[in-house]
Write a protein that binds this DNA or RNA. Sequence first.
RNA 1: GGAAGGGUGGCAGAGCGGACUAAUGCGCACGCCUCGAAAGCGUGUGAGGUGAAAGCCUCCGGGGGUUCGAAUCCCCCCCCUUCCGCCA
Length: 429
Amino acid sequence: MIDIRLVRDDTEAIKAALGRRGIDPADIDRLVALDAQARSSIGARDEVRARIKAISKEVGAARRDGDTARAEALSEESRDAGERERELDVTATDIQDQVRSILLVLPNLPSADAPDGAGPEDNVVARSWPEVAPVYGDHQRVPHWEVGAALGLLDMERGAKLSGSMFPLYRGMGARLVRALESFALDRHADAYEEIRPPTLVLTETMVSTGHLPKFEEDAYHLERDDLWAIPTAEVPLTSMWRGDILDEADLPLRLTAGTSCYRREAGSAGRDTRGLLRVHEFEKVELFAYSTPDQAAAEHEAMVARAEDLLQALGLQYRVLDLCAGDIGLSAARTFDLEVYSPGVDMWLEVSSVSWCSDYQARRANIRYRPEEGKGPVFVHTLNGSALAWARIWAALVETGRQDDGSVVLPDVLAPYLGGRTVVDAPG
RNA sequence: GGAAGGGUGGCAGAGCGGACUAAUGCGCACGCCUCGAAAGCGUGUGAGGUGAAAGCCUCCGGGGGUUCGAAUCCCCCCCCUUCCGCCA
């Protein structure tokens, strides 16, 4: 959530900032009006409450003095006030809920540094790696689902048999590659990030804290019987680890990493990129996550992007970094860099990481604060998250990039320790 | 799943219908003392909302109820501990 006080006190600036994301200024005016209404109704209710408390004290005093008649009269007055209080409370609560439900779907304020633009076409390519684009041979122009099927690494048909389409099933070296990638990434960040293995089914509140609910309910798997949600990213449980808590400044930045399965219904993208591993309902991902002070956030964000890039460089995959424009940044983020890997078999740039600085947007939802060493009360932390790569698409890019003339696949040397020393997947026959 | 006991401020822990404005201890901050420190003594120490301020209101796991008045009584739910059952 953004700070309602900012909306109240600096309405025009908020309209301008959210206007960059396509929010209608009239919506903000409506919110401001509703907020004013909420505050006045809270005031009216609290006045009556104060009256009731005062009367109750007098009743107690009258009882002690044995003045039953006076106690009765006061009780009667308080009963009437109680009725009014209930009515006023219903009104106040209702209006407050309306304000909150608007705030919950209102996106974060974009960073001033984020480029202008309305959609994906306006994103800016910040840099590419390697500087000189590689040249790919014909043997690399084979899509990973064909390579995977031929070498017995990937069996999409059997995955669909078990769970429906877009649920991959890896086999043999293909399965081991997924495991290797996860270990590789977690080990790579062990120097600065605490490894977490969180639950992957979470409460509604946990999903609301990151911004995945209520707005994107259609994208999430929900287990109705137990009212639990399957996480779309480890960012969800990691954000809520300190939900409702107040951290010490000395604890920050607090860095966490987790490898989990991620579940996405992909409701809005039916029919698009459905081949192979381009878009799947379940995939593995290693996430980097940090809570920081506002001052630390920019450096933390940069460092996180560098770490994601480091993984791609270590794997030898061609990629580019996109600075997302205001119109394309996700709900909770103020600024986001996407990493896209080039996959020669499908001849596409595949998004494999999204590194976001969410300022205090999620922290306000989740009520996560810290006590500054200098100064007054607790303030909201900033949250940052980034994929230390999503392995389904990396898997695809590795298999396509590594395909040799003879049909075999050569995997990066850095993975050798995780693959039992063997980085070659032989062609059949 | 069954039984019992619990969930109170940063922590420990008392309170079990009206002075709760939540005791007390620890911790923390400041002061006194000291060459300096420890000890000791003193003072102060939760969060949120609203308001120019004084103040007012909310929060004792969550929700609902009883009452003039609820941390305290009743109902439902969640979580923790122990025991039993079941289970990878």
